[in-house]
């Protein structure tokens, strides 16, 4: 029986939470295909980390890549290629993260298989599992059937819910060494660029701007709108930060801050999966967008289809009447 392999994500601080989302995805697939799950930890060899996963009842391979110092895509691809050639997994579950995106597509080619990016849902079909991924800026999901094996499933962070852990018998840990003798990539270390997100973390209300804002000057209108709420701050989706309209520390999404305010008001934000993954922890999500098909509406409590600026003026008028 071919297993389902999960590539564990970790950093200096240990296992990264997205790993548990990968395991949740693997459990769904394992149920549908009657397969077992094997977790693989590519790294320096870390028995404590391996035990943490094995204690969840998941067989674990503690894969020490000798000669690798820190993450290195060449080393990952080389070592995982060797391991998976023997293990012959049916599916390989990887995070659609900065690390997963870096090594998984190439690994898929090397294994003679394929890879599906940004998977947010799995549908059971007579022909086997179909994998859903966003297209058309999140307005639709494409259901995709893998035609090559093994298939690497790159899981969208935030898409699979972690179930509460029930009691499980600790599973076996297998320690393994693979030597890496590449040399085209030299790691130079990790550097921290910004202490981001403090304002976003502390705010009760985040008013977030997207491309629907149109002009940079319109940020003033949004600032004024945000000022109507106590303990509020203006955040932004990635494109506005890329264009230099707003500082990086106000960016919300996978590559920015994951936020959990009392109220999140998305203004002119279409709702790309990168952005959505950063806002799902909000208590109340209100979205204002002129496009009734905007993907953000699928993840909102309250949907306001309107011209953003007309809506803000109307809201200001109401507030003036009820101070």
């Amino acid at each position: 029986m071919r297993p389902i392999a999960v590539v564990v994500e970790h950093d200096a601080g240990g296992i990264i939470p997205v790993t548990h989302e990968l395991l949740a995805c693997a459990r769904i697939l394992a149920d549908q295909t009657q397969s077992s799950i094997v977790a693989v930890i590519p790294g320096k060899g870390d028995p404590a980390m391996a035990k943490q996963i094995a204690d969840l009842g998941i067989e674990t391979v503690d894969l020490a890549i000798i000669g690798m110092d820190g993450y290195n895509s060449e080393a990952y691809k080389g070592a995982l290629f060797q391991l998976f050639t023997t293990l012959a997994p049916l599916y390989i579950i990887v995070g659609h993260t900065a690390t997963g995106r870096d090594f998984a597509p190439g690994l898929g080619v090397r294994l003679g298989g394929g890879s599906i990016a940004g998977v947010n849902h799995i549908v059971s079909d007579q022909t086997g599992p179909l994998f859903s991924r966003p297209v058309l800026n999140g307005v639709k999901n494409a259901l995709v059937r893998p035609d090559a094996s093994p298939c690497i499933i790159m899981v969208q962070p935030g898409a699979f819910r972690v179930q509460g852990t029930s009691f499980a018998c600790p599973a076996r840990v297998t320690a393994m060494d693979i030597r890496f003798t590449g040399g085209t990539i030299q790691p130079l270390g990790i550097k921290t660029v910004t202490t981001q997100g403090e304002d976003l973390d502390q705010a009760a209300v985040i008013v977030a701007a997207g491309r629907g804002l149109g002009e940079r000057e319109n940020l003033d209108i949004l600032e004024r709108f945000a000022a109507l709420f106590p303990n509020s701050v203006v955040g932004a989706s990635r494109p506005l930060v890329d264009d230099g309209w707003i500082e990086y520390r106000f960016q919300v999404g996978i590559t920015g801050a994951r936020v959990s305010p009392k109220l999140y008001i998305a203004c002119g934000i279409s709702g790309s999966s990168q952005h959505l993954a950063g806002i799902l922890g909000s208590e109340l999500i209100v979205s204002v967008n002129s496009d009734p098909n905007a993907a953000i509406f699928n993840h909102s409590d309250l949907c306001i289809v309107a011209d953003l600026f007309e809506f803000i003026s109307a809201f200001e008028r109401i507030l003036q009447r009820h101070p």
Partner: peptide
């Protein structure tokens, strides 16, 4: 040869109630 086939498009799942005003 492609490594995957598009089977169909569908509307995304809603993660919240999505009350439209």
């Amino acid at each position: 040869a492609d490594t995957q086939t598009l089977v169909r498009l569908e509307a995304p799942l809603k993660s919240r109630s999505g009350r439209v005003l």
